[in-house]
Write a protein that binds this DNA or RNA. Structure first.
Lengths: 186, 186
DNA sequence: AACACATTTGACCAATGGTCAAAAATGAGA
DNA sequence: TCTCATTTTTGACCATTGGTCAAATGTGTT
């Protein structure tokens, strides 16, 4: 039986997602796969580079969804609303991925997280630029950053208890209204 | 020389605060104190109960500050603003503590975390009740929850890179303005 | 001095991430 | 089918961690 790189990634992802990066041991991953732990170190430099590869895939998935959202029709403000909504929904729908990507803090992949968070931020920033005429006179990147923080707050507080999206969608709408209303020109 | 419980807590606190819970070893704490690591386990059940005691003190401090803020003079809205400001400032000033209490999902602290988050929430909720006349027609606990999420978003995003408070205080004010403005009656 | 009790030590344990020489599997050419 | 070099896999091994515990040391009281 040949060693399947992608299989390792799948198993590792589901373990990281269920139990958290620091609570999943390389030995456990190897054991689930039926390998000795040394084997993992032949195929992956270390634990960090394994999680790194997993995150790379998951971030790409989220970026794709958000970019799709920016291409919808509508007023700039309503587009902005849609992008925030998409980001929040992604977080609630993929709580474990979100934790790995935006919450879990580990020097092993801190730089990577920062880079990916920045891509997300750039998508938001574009939307803010387009809606600038209707927003307050603050630097666009400051506005985008505030939106990002607010969205992150919503997601990270609500993924604690795994509430499904249906139970949150109304709250999310009110919350986004709050953010938009708070940023509009008076 | 007698073993000083409070001295241990001080040393441990400063290490935890500077380097983070998981990166501070019991051996290191003991070494700084000039003790063998076994001694710590005579005085504290385990590492978790040591940090637990530290957090208990520091969060009591935070509660006190927040409660003080509620007793300041002024319009209900401005009081609310002050409470949010105090909460955010505490988070930025104590990033590692904040992470342990509100971000990290460690079964060792789960119950403790829940209780602390709830106390914080209750203080916010009181303020919201008092300012209800000027706020939107939404259930007060929903408004308080939105404020909590927003504040949490600000803190948890900004503690990533250990930015000092001075660099954030202006942003924090704008952010709180956004939240308040977004919640006011139109 | 003798005794009881509180405190401290450091050897020890199991688990971790990680390394590495040696063993095993693989596959291409004869 | 038999080499034999190359790729994989193994498991003993290392340092470090949180934690335990019997034994050693200190302390105060009579």
């Amino acid at each position: 039986m040949k060693f399947q790189r992608e299989k390792v990634i799948q198993v590792a992802r589901s373990l990281f997602v269920e139990e958290g990066y620091q609570y999943v041991t390389m030995r456990k991953i190897a054991h689930v796969l039926g390998y000795s732990h040394g084997t993992l170190y032949y195929h992956f430099k270390d634990k960090a580079s394994l999680i790194h590869e997993i995150l790379q895939q998951d971030f790409a998935h989220m970026r794709e969804k958000m970019t799709q959202a920016t291409q919808k029709q509508g007023e700039p403000i309503s587009q902005l609303r849609t992008v925030i909504y998409t980001f929040i929904r992604f977080g609630i729908d993929h709580p474990h991925h979100y934790r790995l990507m935006f919450v879990e803090k580990d020097p092993d992949f801190a730089i990577f997280q920062l880079k990916e968070a920045d891509v997300t931020f750039q998508i938001l920033l574009d939307m803010v630029h387009q809606a600038a005429a209707e927003l307050q006179d603050l630097p666009p990147n400051q506005i985008a950053w505030m939106i990002f923080m607010a969205a992150h707050g919503f997601i990270s507080q609500n993924i604690a208890d795994q509430t499904p999206w249906e139970a949150l969608s109304s709250l999310a709408k009110h919350y986004i209204d709050m953010v938009i209303q708070g940023l509009k020109k008076q």
